[in-house]
Design a protein around this nucleic acid. Structure first.
Lengths: 212, 212
DNA sequence: ACAATAATACCGACCGGTCGGTATGATTTT
DNA sequence: AAAATCATACCGACCGGTCGGTATTATTGT
């Protein structure tokens, strides 16, 4: 989720530089394949600085997930779709924004939390929890709009929380399919998946033939 | 995708034992975090045997993806839902089977290809391609039934290939959300996601109010 | 005002251990 | 006997992490 940089403040302290490096390198190589030395090199910082700020590589992983959480949370909270009047339009607006963010190599639009949790869910409870918080936080930000849309359209048979989680599910799955594709095809695959997610919401919220 | 063992022939040769070990360990720890020594230990085989059969760790990764591909392909090809008369029922039957396979710790029902490609998509083209083939092969096996169902129900606006890929997307995403959850909650999260996928198909193929 | 003190931020050499991989030798199978 | 199938010992690079130290910036005592 979310492209690199523009909406994130420039990293000044060694700590911030390391977190930025973590986001970039973990996205491209994964957590385990990224070494502390490599992180330091990429951040232009020494190993001493690394262990001054982080007790361990695992601690950096947790901090990176939190950092990511905060960055994405801030970004989506400020997105313009929130001003739309109809709650369903806000939900679809979110999906459309996610689609718009897709482009370029996968590592530029994929999710740090989803990448990291896949590798560390068994070896590090702390990282798992931090990644879970990041993804679920992203889902929770949608819940109110989904709940409002459900009430307005009389949708039953599921919950807003479940639907919000499903949005995250499709996003994470889209990133995996995109990674498996050739660089050039990754974005199309991801957009295709989110297109189906969008249609699911359209169908779900317009069961009486409002569509077509 | 797919639980451990029952439908796979017992591993006898060192090669097969190593592939089995790879499936187990990569599912639980990821590719990068799994060392060659660990693979050998788990397989009850020496390092000499490893490098006798595989030129490198990367080569094992490719072979593991192929092995996985073959095992899952065989399993799903033999599944009973293929005998259903209505193509839509066959598609829903596939999803129901996927739901039924979910249970226990995530590493017992997650996908080797999806896990591996997330870590290696940039560092190893060979692994990326092998994982892509595995996941897309799984999708392609659904395509004919989806195409038939689309024709029968007059569904337009997308393609059978795109829908089949979307099934894989949701499955892969479900595994990630499940990994992020506490061990006990993982299966519920995954089933929940596949439930939404099922409802998407129900809605898509019954646009004129056949539902409810 | 200014020195003494202490906390913070960082540096880079170094450590034990593990990594993927190799070289060579011993069995077993054909 | 020749090829396939391992087993063992070993290699250099690199791993995460430690350590003694320094430069800079508050804080405090007088």
């Amino acid at each position: 989720m979310i492209p690199n940089c523009p909406f994130r403040p420039e990293a000044i302290t060694a700590r911030d530089k390391l977190l930025e490096a973590a986001v970039t390198l973990v996205r491209a190589q994964g957590y385990a394949a990224t070494s502390v030395d490599q992180l330091c090199r990429h951040a232009g910082v020494t190993k001493g600085a690394f262990f001054h700020y982080f007790a361990s590589k695992e601690a950096l992983g947790v901090a990176a997930a939190d950092y990511w959480s905060h960055a994405t949370g801030t970004f989506f909270a400020a997105a313009p779709f929130h001003t739309l009047g109809d709650p369903l339009d806000r939900v679809l607006g979110y999906i459309d924004l996610r689609i718009a963010l897709i482009g370029g190599p996968v590592e530029n639009f994929s999710c740090v939390a989803g990448t990291m949790v896949q590798e560390a869910f068994r070896s590090s409870a702390a990282i798992r929890v931090a990644c879970d918080a990041s993804m679920m936080g992203n889902a929770r930000a949608l819940e109110a709009d989904i709940a409002a849309a459900m009430a307005e359209h009389g949708v039953t048979g599921t919950t807003a929380a479940s639907l919000a989680q499903h949005v995250q599910t499709v996003i994470q799955g889209a990133f995996i399919l995109a990674k498996a594709a050739d660089v050039a095809d990754g974005p199309d695959r991801a957009r295709d998946a989110l297109g189906h997610l969008r249609r699911y919401f359209e169908l779900l919220f317009a069961p009486n033939g409002r569509l077509q």
